[in-house]
Amino acid sequence: MENLVEAILVGLLISDMTVLASSRVAGCIRVTAMQGLLLGVLTLLLQAEAMSLRVVLMAGIGMLLKGGVFPYLLARAGKEAGVQREVEPFVGYIGSVLLAVAMLVVAVWLGTRLPLQVHAGQTLVVPAAFMTMFTGLFLIVARRKALTQVVGFLVFENGIYAFGVATVGEVPALVELGVLLDAFVAVFVMGIAIYHINREFDHIDTDQLSSLKG
């Protein structure tokens, strides 16, 4: 049981690294989907003692949205925009991997420093959550394509979710639903925006948006 939680968290860390090291946008989207599923399972495992219909429902909705709906929307937006690869990101892939290791070290250090109440024996939850948040932020900063940045946003959201699961445990259903709805709207809006940006400019490189400035 504890080993399983550990394995899921390690899986989360590996998925963070994969998303940083991968240049294929479709691959990144798939990894995010997997993260969503992993987090759902994680919620169920951590709340195993206090299993209720509400917990199962929340985890189910989360898995459905993050593991199914969002990736589908993103993949469709990517297909319509004709984006396959992130070419020439601001930070190269080897650099990203090295930075990932550095982020991991910082995350673990933060995890030992923050006086947080975590489930007994689950010392990896907080570092994994931090690492996932860092990864999301890094993707938003260091990549050019709008689509990858949305992926970054989703990864960031996953990190926050993991953090919440780890520390708070029982989140009021309304708040949790609200967060999911926010994410949903965000992905939806960004999908539409990407579609329109692409139609107007034939690319979705955000660094060139600055040329719109009057």
């Binding site: 390690v10 080897i94 991997v97 290791v101 990896l124």
Partner: peptide
């Protein structure tokens, strides 16, 4: 090829950080 080797390094680093914890 260096990308793959960097990935190996990252995996090993992850392993080490987990052991260190």
């Amino acid at each position: 090829v260096p990308h793959l080797l960097a990935a190996a390094g990252a995996l090993a680093a992850l392993a080490f950080v987990l052991v260190l914890r």
